[in-house]
Design a protein around this nucleic acid. Structure first.
Length: 265
DNA sequence: ATGGTCGGTGTCCGA
């Protein structure tokens, strides 16, 4: 089995379809997981992906906000979507490939600005979402199933996943309550943090740079919000990994860059 | 300590 997977918060798939096709041509992943597609399914540019060989498509979008999609050259045995926190927003899509790998594409709520669930319902939603993410896999008994969980998880868990650990401890995405719940979700299925299998914890590693910087590259105030998790049954299977930082410099860039990994068993 | 920029259901909301 070989599988190359890519995840990218695209921040409007219709606006950036040309960037997506450039990524697919250059890197040719088998499967691409998108978040923040920001379109209803009727307007999703299915044909553009079909033309590039990504004929297997699992799409779940809504008007204006959120939205996830899995575009694949490999066929699906099944597709599934979950409504986290009892909400209808489109934040999860799962497929099982015919090679047996189960793939979850997740878009965790950003959580708003104020890191207090008592005054900020968006932050409360984010914490609930992370708890549910832990619960789903905690209760699963089929630990042998090869599985991947990728997406914009909107948490930078490690001190070196942000430009300043100290200055971001009270900033949503890096608060202790978030990183603890993130850790619990990760531990619930013994998920492997694939990016950190390749890059030591002591090294800075980011996948997102704010639009608000005058010069994103010069200030380099990034965060690692986008993740690829692999189940323990895939330990050692990840052979290559990349976070495509140069794409942040593309014209009309998303504020997130793609994360890629290649698995071989 | 603050403000800064994006995209879309656009003169507001979510990120």
């Amino acid at each position: 089995m070989t599988l190359t997977v890519a995840t990218w918060n695209i921040n409007s798939v219709r606006l950036r379809i040309n960037l997506v096709t450039r990524l697919l041509r250059q890197h040719q992943p088998d499967v691409l997981c998108l978040q923040e597609t920001k379109t209803i399914d009727d307007f999703f540019p299915r044909k553009r992906f079909q033309e590039l060989g990504y004929v297997h498509q699992a799409i779940r979008g809504q008007k204006g906000y959120h939205g996830v999609a899995i575009l694949s050259r490999l066929p699906f045995a099944r597709t599934d979507t979950r409504e986290f926190c009892g909400k209808q927003d489109c934040r999860h899509m799962a497929v099982t490939l015919t090679n047996g790998i189960e793939l979850h594409n997740v878009y965790v709520p950003a959580g708003g600005d104020i890191p207090d669930p008592n005054v900020n319902p968006k932050f409360a939603h984010k914490l609930d979402f992370l708890r549910e993410l832990a619960d789903i896999f905690e209760t699963r008994t089929d630990r042998a199933t090869p599985a991947l969980l990728v997406g914009d998880l909107n948490v930078a868990p490690l001190p070196q996943d942000v430009w300043s650990h100290k200055q971001l401890l009270n900033v949503v995405s890096h608060t202790p309550v978030e990183t603890e719940l993130f850790g619990a979700a990760k531990a619930a299925f013994d998920w492997i943090d694939v990016s950190r299998e390749f890059v030591p914890h002591e090294e800075k590693l980011y996948s997102w740079w704010s639009y608000r910087a005058l010069d994103w590259e010069k200030s380099d105030r990034g965060r690692r919000l986008d993740h690829i998790w692999a189940s323990p049954s895939l330990r050692g299977a990840a052979k290559t990994h990349a976070i495509l930082k140069p794409l942040r410099g593309w014209k009309l860039a998303s504020d997130h860059v793609p994360v890629l990994a290649r698995f071989e068993t």
